[in-house]
Design a protein around this nucleic acid. Structure first.
Lengths: 207, 207
DNA sequence: GTCTATATGAAGATAGAC
DNA sequence: GTCTATCTTCATATAGAC
């Protein structure tokens, strides 16, 4: 009886561990080679399991890919910084928000995720949706809520907060983001310039 | 002698015709399936030639891909509309420029090209460069020149015309472009709102 | 549940006839 | 120059032992 109980606990745990290793291996493979370029052999090798084990856990390459992307979309979400933003001057809060955004968006993993999801949006339309909702849309919504909490500072922008938030983020991304996605190396000054442009836009300080 | 002369003209023309057909077939294949997903068998079948002919003309899949992307980058360039812009009020010229940009950027072929080039920017870095230079950079440069020709209307923006032009285009793209790349269908009102936001930004009409 | 070994097909690239 | 036929490799997915 004792051994049975132990087995009941241990076996699923080991299975979960394998599952996590497979996901980790698949993540590396899909991010670096894309959906078509990735091979299930390489996934199994990287995860240190046999290919059969991969198929037992995920059924097919498509389902494994979907699992990897969903996990990444969940992980990449920024922590909610609304409280920290509310405890400082509005302009400082905006700059803080902007810098957090940039460090997330230009993280190499985020860039690769972006490339892969855009590339496979025809084959996996629901992943395109998921990526947009968990990424940009969350940030826009969070920023819009902040704007609404400070109607005086944001003036007319507060009356259309979602639109203002999206425009702020668009100025923040600029074409620097596209350059990074295309493999060009943006110069560091582009980031600080983008922050100032976006903040000035929302606070109407047209220098 | 007559036949020789005729042959001298005809053979290269036929070879060029085949070459064009191969490029057309390859374009369809690469745009719809991506680099890895595309097959040389399918390219040959779509072009109506044998696979050997494809290899005679282009040597390898990589070279064929490069040829296709280069051709697309050349074709997608907008005609120069500077003269038309100069012959009307500045605000109207900006709206015209904006609408042209949008119709180019949201063209299905452009969207697919964008997806593929971003996806393959690691394997083909020079194509990432080319795409940026022939696409966004050309538009930014053209718009910056227009701004410089009208320093009075653009005020402070004219003193940093390249930056102002890039910011204009960033507001114009907004997140609508990303949504389109992710397979989400933007609502029509997003386009006209983006045009007004971008124009208002540059002309400092903060409504 | 996980392994080794394999079925089955398709890919990129080439040989050799004409 | 273009074709048919083929080489070689590697892919996804599975069968069967333990």
């Amino acid at each position: 009886m004792v051994t049975t109980v132990a087995a009941r606990r241990t076996r699923p745990q080991r299975a979960d561990a394998k599952r996590a290793e497979i996901l980790a291996g698949a993540r590396a493979e899909f991010l670096s080679r894309g959906y078509e370029g990735a091979s299930m052999d390489a996934v199994a090798a990287t995860a240190g399991v046999s290919k059969m084990t991969v198929y037992r856990h995920f059924g097919s390459k498509e389902q494994l890919f979907s699992g990897v992307i969903r996990q990444l979309c969940d992980e990449i979400i920024d922590e909610d910084i609304s409280e920290q933003m509310d405890s400082q001057p509005v302009a400082d809060a905006m700059r803080m928000f902007a810098r957090r955004m940039l460090s997330t968006v230009y993280d190499p993993v985020t860039l690769q995720l972006h490339r892969v999801v855009v590339a496979e949006s025809s084959r996996f339309p629901e992943l395109g949706n998921l990526f947009y909702e968990q990424g940009p849309l969350r940030s826009i919504t969070l920023l819009a809520a902040f704007i609404k909490r400070h109607p005086k500072e944001f003036g007319a922008h507060a009356r259309n907060a979602e639109r203002a938030a999206a425009e702020f983020m668009s100025l923040l991304r600029g074409y620097t983001h596209l350059k990074a996605l295309l493999g060009l190396n943006p110069s560091p000054s582009e980031f600080s310039e983008a922050v100032e442009s976006a903040v000035d836009f929302l606070l109407r300080r047209n220098s």
